[in-house]
């Protein structure tokens, strides 16, 4: 009898191949970051290196105050994550539970903003920051990141909130909760899966954002981590080692946040996507 692989095996095999392809750039980054200083380029499409060295990481820490930039990134990212969670969950609660004139149009308007690519917004955001005196300040990045993160978060929260049985809120009303109390004490504690999706997504996009940071931040002491690799770019990318070592360092916080919250994230995506 010929052996036919089960659909599950086929699925696993396809996903493994895809994951492998996805991993190639990450491996290339690691390879260059760990390349000994004498080597000029990694072989085999950038994956093969002769020997392993942490010298590039040493250079990265010597040449720039990595920790300071890391703290800058954290201040900007964490503030925007908190703002996005609070603003979008409150807005989504209103969208999910109240009927008001123009509510649907407002929601679809919000969805439409997702279609705008960040590069298209650079000039207007720069102008706004300039007008409000926010250039070269943390708020010059925190506020745009928050504004750009809210629409996606509202979609996730709204579909999640819609699936929460209304009787729970009614029971809380009778128990003595105000509308804000219901949001705070019932809805948000039940929405950890949705919150983890929003946190991961917002953390990832804010922490990794480059273009807006490049045009907004001028003072070295305020620059986020993503601007540090530019130091090593030079005309012919003269120092790929320290540059990729810094890029490796940038990925670590995102990976840590993902690992901490991925358990909820999978449930959150399902729960948010399927109204049950």
């Amino acid at each position: 009898m010929p052996l036919t692989p089960s659909p599950r095996t086929i699925k696993t095999a396809v996903l493994t191949v895809l994951a492998g392809i996805w991993l190639v750039p990450v491996l290339m980054m690691l390879a260059v970051a760990l390349m000994p200083p004498g080597q000029r380029a990694a072989g085999f499409g950038g994956l093969a290196i002769k020997g392993v060295s942490l010298a590039s990481f040493g250079t990265a820490f010597d040449r720039a105050p990595i920790l300071l930039h890391f703290v800058n990134s954290l201040i900007i990212t964490v503030t925007s994550v908190v703002l996005v969670v609070v603003i979008s969950s409150l807005a989504a609660y209103a969208f999910a539970r109240t009927r008001f004139r123009g509510g649907e149009s407002l929601f679809y308007g919000l969805l439409a903003t997702l279609m705008l690519p960040i590069p298209a917004l650079i000039v207007p955001i720069f102008q706004l920051n300039k007008t409000f005196g926010l250039l070269d300040t943390y708020w010059g990045l925190i506020l745009p990141y928050t504004a750009l993160g809210v629409p996606f978060a509202v979609i996730i929260y709204r579909s999640f909130f819609s699936a929460i049985p209304q009787e729970l809120e009614e029971a809380a009303k009778i128990d003595g909760c105000s509308t804000f109390g219901i949001w705070l004490r019932i809805i948000m504690p039940l929405s950890w899966p949705a919150t983890s999706v929003v946190v991961i997504f917002q953390f990832m996009t804010s922490f990794n954002e480059f273009i807006l940071a490049l045009v907004t931040m001028d003072s070295n002491s305020l620059k986020p981590l993503t601007l540090v690799p530019l130091i090593y770019a030079g005309p012919f990318m003269a120092q790929p080692g320290p540059m990729f070592a810094t890029l490796t360092l940038i990925t670590i916080p995102v990976v840590v946040v993902y690992l901490l919250m991925q358990r909820f994230m999978i449930g959150g995506l399902t729960a948010g996507a399927v109204k049950g």
């Binding site: 009787e167 009614e170 809380a172 009303k173 009778i174 128990d175 039940l190």
Partner: peptide, 20 residues
Amino acid sequence: LPARDRDIAMVFQSYALYPH
């Protein structure tokens, strides 16, 4: 008056217990 000011208590068909 809002529900919380009526001094009533209600048992729901689905019990509506707070899962968390």
